[in-house]
Amino acid sequence: MKEKIVKLQLALFYKQPDFRPDSSYSDINKEMGNLFNAMPQVMNLPNNVPLDIPRVQMRDELNKYACNMAPIRTDFFINENHDSEENWPEIVKDFKAKSSLFIKSVLSRHEIVRFGLIGNFFIPDKSSSHTMTKKFLKIDLQNAEEINLRFNNRSSSHGYNLNNITSINTAFAGTSTGDEKGIFIELDVNNVPDEKTMDQASLNNLIDKIIPTFSPDQVKGLVK
């Protein structure tokens, strides 16, 4: 089975809300090397709209890199659009370099109390229901139209309590030749927030520790 990398995401959550993310998006883009070179979208939403809904959306012209800014969080994305697992080392190198700039820029403006590191992956598999049934279940669901699994293994690292959430489901992915049947896997590692704020070194160290668990061998091992 050859894995395809869909997306990597880093989310940073603020201690206090910022109701004017439109005032800083240009500086964040500049501090990240003007990475987001497409026209930004700025939405004038009232403060009673849920605070996790983005007010500013930035992206590059190729839709590879994106940044969403909401009053209580800012998210950085690398959209790999089903890139091959052979490119994983280069993807990680690129993600870590740009995430470091992202962290530094956001921390210069906000106190951060929570982070989330998310990876989305797709494994083509014409017998996806059978694969998941054989791996996880004792009942015969190989003809099921849809199977969804989700579990959370708590751990700790660098003084933080972490949620390690794994979501696995049968899915169809759109490709240039049509829909492809397979297994969609999302890995979401985030800390249980407390009163402690997070610094740049801690965030970079956590990414260094977690990102190897997103490798193709680790992800494919979830369903082998």
Results as ranks from 00 to 15, higher is better:
residue 6 V to K: 15
residue 7 K to E: 11
residue 9 Q to H: 08
residue 13 F to W: 04
residue 14 Y to K: 13
residue 18 D to G: 04
residue 20 R to E: 11
residue 29 N to I: 02
residue 32 M to P: 08
residue 34 N to Y: 05
residue 40 P to Y: 05
residue 41 Q to M: 14
residue 42 V to T: 09
residue 43 M to P: 00
residue 47 N to P: 14
residue 49 V to S: 13
residue 50 P to E: 08
residue 54 P to Y: 07
residue 55 R to Q: 10
residue 57 Q to Y: 11
residue 59 R to P: 03
residue 64 K to C: 04
residue 66 A to D: 03
residue 67 C to Y: 02
residue 67 C to H: 02
residue 70 A to N: 06
residue 72 I to M: 09
residue 77 F to I: 08
residue 79 N to S: 14
residue 80 E to H: 13
residue 81 N to K: 15
residue 82 H to V: 00
residue 82 H to G: 00
residue 84 S to T: 15
residue 93 K to M: 14
residue 93 K to D: 13
residue 94 D to H: 13
residue 101 L to Y: 11
residue 103 I to T: 01
residue 103 I to P: 03
residue 110 H to Y: 12
residue 116 G to C: 12
residue 118 I to D: 04
residue 120 N to T: 10
residue 128 S to N: 07
residue 128 S to I: 06
residue 134 K to H: 11
residue 138 K to P: 00
residue 144 A to V: 09
residue 145 E to S: 15
residue 148 N to K: 10
residue 150 R to W: 00
residue 152 N to C: 06
residue 152 N to I: 06
residue 153 N to W: 06
residue 154 R to P: 01
residue 154 R to H: 11
residue 156 S to W: 07
residue 156 S to A: 04
residue 160 Y to C: 11
residue 160 Y to E: 15
residue 167 S to C: 04
residue 167 S to W: 03
residue 172 F to N: 14
residue 176 S to G: 11
residue 179 D to N: 13
residue 182 G to L: 05
residue 189 V to K: 05
residue 190 N to V: 01
residue 194 D to H: 11
residue 195 E to Q: 08
residue 196 K to W: 01
residue 197 T to W: 04
residue 197 T to L: 04
residue 197 T to G: 02
residue 197 T to I: 12
residue 198 M to R: 04
residue 201 A to Y: 15
residue 205 N to W: 14
residue 212 P to D: 05
residue 218 Q to V: 14
residue 220 K to D: 02
residue 221 G to Q: 12
residue 223 V to M: 10
